[in-house]
Amino acid sequence: MEMLRTENIVKQYAGHKALDDITISTKKGEIFGLLGPNGAGKTSLIRIINQITGPDSGKVYLQGKEIKREDIARIGYLPEERGLYKKMKVKEQALYFARLKGMSKQDAKKKLEEWFEKFEITSWYDKKVEELSKGMAQKIQFITTVIHEPELLILDEPFSGFDPINTELIKSEILRLKESGTSIMLSTHNMNSVEEICDSIALINQSKLVVNGSLKEVKERYRTHTYAVQFKGLMFGFANALFASFALEHSEQIDEDRAIAHVKLLKGNTLNDLLRTVMPVVEIEAVNEVIPTMNDIFIRAVKGETEEGGDENE
């Protein structure tokens, strides 16, 4: 089921387009990663979804209905530029944010107590934020984002600025929230965490949507048809046998007579063709497809390489 959809979003700032015709869609209960280099337009898109700014054209739909002002109560937002009122007491502050999201005072108090007990920080209630350490403030920040139990949680660079312990804590909380049915959208630079937790991704580069789909689909699309072949025999013979139908990307020697070679299939050849070609020359020990990492995909997409096999042939 669809959770969020943006349709042909365009946003222009004096002389430069921040978002150019962005259409994405996220499913209910999934973790959606919004990727892209700095200045690509991720935050602009997130702000439009949060109704902080409006698009020049295009629409945002929440569960199939055009998003309304009241819907912000259903969204939890952790901006990239985040902070708390330094002089305000922790409890008052958390209550204030919760009530701004539309919670009643009683409900907010109850939820707040639950979260504070969970994070074992009830002793901080009457502390001012300026008395807390950065890590402590980050916990409060996270609680204020999720206290009103949003259906959609939008986290802009959630792993930047948090210390490693809090990053782990938040990662596990994100996964737990997903378990309980919350849909999550996060923007990040951290490609490892994308592989770890994202179900779908969209990659924005220079205001345009470059890649979009489930993690599996995207990886499929960015297959390079490259295989790592581990064999016993001479590297020289192996390389010679490949001839024009395959390209040797790189190789490494494991010991005196064993090596691993990364071979790319060219001109519609299959793995079977490759095996047939090299079997007479060397003794094959293992073959694995080289799956592109999100990092590779990210870099390739940003550099403007086309999908399906890169820039070499076609």
């Binding site: 902080i52 912000i72 708390l84 009122y85 701004l100 984002t145």
Partner: peptide, 16 residues
Amino acid sequence: EKTSRVVEIIVSSIQP
């Protein structure tokens, strides 16, 4: 509010 970076959280709940 701007320097403490709290403002974006607030404006995600109430119009600027």
